[in-house]
Design a protein around this nucleic acid. Structure first.
Lengths: 125, 125
DNA sequence: CGGTATCCTTTCAGATACTG
DNA sequence: CAGTATCTGAAAGGATACCG
């Protein structure tokens, strides 16, 4: 297998979609590219604080392979490569939107009514 | 930290949502519980071919901790435990629906114009 | 600038055996 | 029936150094 994890066979649609977005940075890359349209490698790197070059390129390659991301290479010096979303990438982003809203709500709730797990106490056991 | 992976801090909503659904079986557990309403441990196990007891209970615990799943214990012999979705679990499922459709489309496309990765050959490399 | 290559650590997942 | 405990291997992720 080339660079990817599994790519099928899948039990259901969620399964297939999750396979394609799973990876620590993929949803963030999607988000970055969706909001900026086109980004260079170093720009993405700066937009994703904490990502290593290895992980960034690895995720970008997988996403390219999965048809989500387009990679445009300009053969000049210094080198220049631009990344953008394909139609599929755009549609995935749209499909991800409700989940994003759910997550945003969740962050609000956690901040409000949840304790950091350890101080909580004897709800169970 | 108890059983979970990270649980925040999050960069955006998608990030938070992905954290909660990532794990090999979580989306499938969600699906099972959504369609059957209530399921016992052994029923879930049978409904998720290939899952080990360890992974199943681990995912169920995390999902309970995350407020997605309700665990009802009947103190009788033989033991009986029923799992069901909470309101949050139901809303997450709803938020996941468009992603599921996207994935279903994707499976169709892959089946149509893509070969199983190994026999494929020189698209790249 | 935009990557590779290498090594290393951490996390995830599966199998097996045992318990209330 | 519904778990818990432990061990092992595989995979994901990260740090660092170097290359065209």
């Amino acid at each position: 297998m080339a660079t990817s994890g599994r790519r099928g066979p899948y039990i259901c649609g969620i399964d297939a979609a999750m396979d394609v977005v799973s990876g620590k940075w993929k949803s963030l890359i999607l988000w970055e590219l969706h909001h900026h349209g086109i980004r260079r490698f170093a720009e993405l790197r700066r937009g994703l604080p904490g990502v290593s070059e290895k992980m960034l390129i690895q995720h970008l390659r997988e996403m390219e392979e999965d048809g989500l991301v387009h990679r445009e290479v300009y053969r000049e010096v210094p080198p220049k490569v631009e990344y953008s979303l394909t139609e599929h990438g755009v549609s995935l982003n749209a499909a991800l939107a409700p989940l994003g809203e759910w997550g945003t709500d969740r962050i609000r709730r956690i901040g409000a009514d949840r304790v950091p797990v350890d101080a909580a106490g004897p709800a169970r056991r």
